[in-house]
């Protein structure tokens, strides 16, 4: 793994290297270098398996972190490529030409985080949500409670109790409520 990292850092400006465990390492790359680096790892270093493409919303820093996890079946090692992109109008280069399965991940990220991958097949089609009018729901500023209160209405006749008061009343009916 150290040899691969050495060769990688000779070619690309990698930073923030974290050896998570013996056979897994995370590195950070700039957006402009990330796709050439992923292509290099796939074509020359044997990281032929795209394990997943994950996104994390760092709303306080105004960025999305995309993590491409790649696996090498010969050495049984993993590398996680972290790429930070702007949260306002997030756009990232597509990798569907490298892995056909990547389009599904990209389609989901477009819907759930609003990250655009221009050129990815079916990127504008809905993936899970039909007719979604709100902001992308996996973003941290999407208020799930507010959405459910506005969208769904309580069933008529349904009562809700404060669990603490309800159990006290049920267990000690003679006792006066505080």
């Amino acid at each position: 793994m150290n040899d691969i990292l050495k060769r990688l850092s000779e070619r690309f400006p990698v930073s923030n290297i974290v050896h998570q465990r013996e056979n897994m390492v995370f590195v950070t790359l700039q957006k402009i270098n990330s796709i050439p680096c992923i292509s290099y790892l796939k074509e020359f270093e044997g990281f032929t398996h795209l394990v997943m493409l994950a996104a994390v919303d760092f709303i306080e820093d105004g960025i999305f972190q995309l993590t491409y996890i790649l696996h090498n079946y010969k050495l049984h090692t993993d590398i996680g490529i972290r790429v930070k992109i702007e949260r306002e109008h997030p756009v990232m280069e597509s990798i569907h030409t490298l892995w056909a399965q990547a389009r599904t991940y990209q389609q989901e990220l477009k819907e759930m985080f609003g990250i655009d991958f221009p050129g990815s097949p079916g990127i504008d089609e809905p993936f899970l949500l039909e007719g979604w009018q709100n902001i992308p729901p996996m973003r941290k500023d999407f208020d799930t409670l507010k959405y459910s209160q506005e969208t769904f209405f309580p069933r008529p006749g349904r009562k809700s109790y404060d669990p603490q008061k309800y159990m006290k009343q049920k267990l000690y009916p003679d006792k006066e409520p505080e």
Binding site: V18, Q20, R21, M24, F26, V51, M52, T67, I69, D78, G80
Partner: peptide
């Protein structure tokens, strides 16, 4: 920190 952990399920990784 961050990590990725895998296991072999009946359907694969």
């Amino acid at each position: 920190g961050e990590t990725y952990v895998r296991a072999e399920a009946s359907r694969g990784e």
